[in-house]
Design a protein around this nucleic acid. Structure first.
Lengths: 349, 349
DNA sequence: TGACAGATTTAGAACGTTCCAAATAATCTG
DNA sequence: CAGATTATTTGGAACGTTCTAAATCTGTCA
């Protein structure tokens, strides 16, 4: 069933020209006569020729494989799926193809995946690193001249371009909003201690409290896994302190959903009895009940930004690392208690 | 910054051996003396050599690029993200790397993406085709001997291996369940008319009605986009007929969520005033309020199955197309009204 | 010690493309 | 129509690997 591979030489022979001419046609060169071009193209179609990019790359000094590698740490999180879609969008229209891999937070797998991508000669890499990735892991990549864009999670000391959202400002805005609603004991829940994102969001939270001249209480800052389960856990611990909080800024939406679950299981209704704010604005945030007040970061937009930056870097061969911070905005819905009028009345038609 | 590429010859020179020996080392051949192997490996690490798979593939007749192409029609739908994770899982542990692309239901983009993948010499392809894909589109692929596995959506007349879920049985079970709860006017909502999946699920719905000796009413079968918005639209139309339904079997979970939205906006609570059943069991189904009764198809499992089948095909060079139908099961939660006792009482602690 | 077997190593020809330099064909120019 | 351009076409040498066949080395045995 599997035929012999048909090569540029086969089609040259069939079309009665030289392989050089065929190559020229393949590259859409204007040097070749229209008539021969058409004939060659006809033969190409007829024989079902498929271009061997590997062979071509071999010859071209500035290897343009046309592949962009994308590495994400958790594809099951819709945030990253959306990010990938954003990247794919830009990358495809620029004529590249995307090579997406999921590390599932496994750093060994990440190493493996990146090695594999390099072997295949990717022209650039966009990465949302797995937990525990260090600057040293990226060093060999950039050293070899591979354009790299770091996104979502920053890595201390990495000398690469980054596209990050403004975590500090977002978290600060979320906290301010809760303050404005009258809350005074506001918790910060969820997130792993050792990640840069967590640090930044926590800093934003503290900024807002400080600005309101409220002494931040350490017992109201509770870290946990950045997942729904982590949220349940965090709110559980938060409610046991001497003076429990009346609202919480959460590390991300998953945690916020978990916090809502936890509140309900103790007989409290989020948005009515307790203010909850998330971060990310995943798709479900809008449609959950109560709809989640959250900081919107537009994952697709972030992906597109990252892709654009990478392409720019590829095309210019620019060695200068650029840092883009994408702005975020607070989307007020029901879980914080602000838009409450829209929610409880829904029962009767 | 970008250094000269270091090749097998460079490392041969540095290690004082021939390129052939280096090649042997690279392939982990036992023919090479342990001492030289170690020396070569040391030099490899030292010079930061990266293997050029393109060049290698050029030489190897049975081109083992080690890339598996995965094409999905909508990555923003978490079903497909999960599917990709399942594929990646199997594929990575088999030493392959995944090349994931999203077509966004755009058939031109799909053509483009597949062409690109072929140029890069993928060893196999797993595809959930975009709407409108025809058997003729897959013909050239299989004709060239490329192993292909079709999943999620079938294509009439395509002579390739498939991994599909048992749509008919699932839909039938969902319908039966609603009948058992006492519903007699059950609608079938959502899905595009011209897709095989829609046909199958609709057939299952009719099977169940027939078995219960209920004459299916055509006005209760309403197709729409297979999205949340489509669901809102479909339920809107369904409620305007002379004798409106009291429950609905939905094309997929997204539609089901839309139906819930639509019901609420007309003052009806899904699970209490109207039975809703979805299909797919996406992650949000479990945690939505009310939790969605749905047909579970295990997207990751499907992905793993598809990947296994593809690998089997690659390794055996087997020309025989195989059709796997994965079984599904109804997961009863609250939206159908069956498990209702758990839901409304939640208010008080 | 010379020949033989096994263990290692190696030169050089592929693989399918691009690119350079040079050849050939076609068209002008006066 | 010769010479000069310009438009097309073309050999053949790369590119970085693998593979085959053959070369070299190392002991061993008679």
């Amino acid at each position: 069933m599997s035929k012999e591979r048909v090569t540029v030489i086969d089609i040259a022979r069939a079309a009665g020209v030289s392989k050089s001419t065929v190559s020229l046609v393949l590259q859409g060169s204007h040097l070749v006569n229209a008539a021969t071009r058409d004939k060659v193209n006809a033969v190409i179609r007829e024989l079902g020729y498929v271009y061997n990019r590997g062979a071509a790359n071999l010859r071209q000094s500035r290897a343009k494989s046309g592949i962009i590698g994308v590495v994400v740490n958790d594809l099951t999180n819709s945030f990253f799926a959306e990010l990938a879609v954003g990247v794919d969008d830009v990358v495809q229209s620029a004529g590249y193809v995307q090579f997406l891999s999921n590390t599932g937070e496994n750093i060994d797998r990440q190493r493996q995946v990146i090695a594999s991508m390099r072997e295949h000669g990717i022209s650039g890499l966009i990465i949302s690193p797995a937990r525990g990735t260090e600057a040293a892991d990226l060093k060999p990549l950039t050293a070899s001249g591979l354009p790299v864009v770091l996104t979502v999670r920053n890595i201390a000391g990495a000398k690469v371009s980054t596209v990050m959202s403004d975590n500090r400002a977002g978290s600060s805005a979320a906290t301010e909003h809760l303050l404005k609603l009258g809350h005074r004991r506001i918790a910060y829940l969820g997130g792993f201690d050792d990640t840069a994102v967590h640090e930044e969001r926590l800093a934003g939270y503290r900024d807002a409290l400080q600005a309101a001249e409220i002494e931040p209480s350490e017992e109201l800052v509770i870290s946990s896994a950045p997942s729904r389960a982590g949220g349940v856990d965090a709110i559980g611990r938060a409610m046991t302190v001497a003076a429990p909080p009346t609202a919480a800024v959460c590390f991300n939406d998953a945690v916020a959903f978990g916090v809502c679950d936890g509140l309900r299981s103790r007989g409290m209704e989020p948005g009515r009895d307790f203010g909850v704010v998330g971060f990310d604005d995943v798709i479900e945030a809008k449609t959950a009940v109560p709809a989640l007040t959250t900081v919107s970061v537009d994952p697709q937009g972030t992906g597109r930004r990252a892709a654009q930056l990478l392409l720019k870097q590829i095309n210019s061969g620019s060695p200068a690392a650029e840092a883009i911070i994408t702005s975020v905005r607070l989307v007020v819905r029901q879980s914080c208690g602000a838009g409450s009028s829209a929610y409880p009345e829904r029962k009767a038609s």
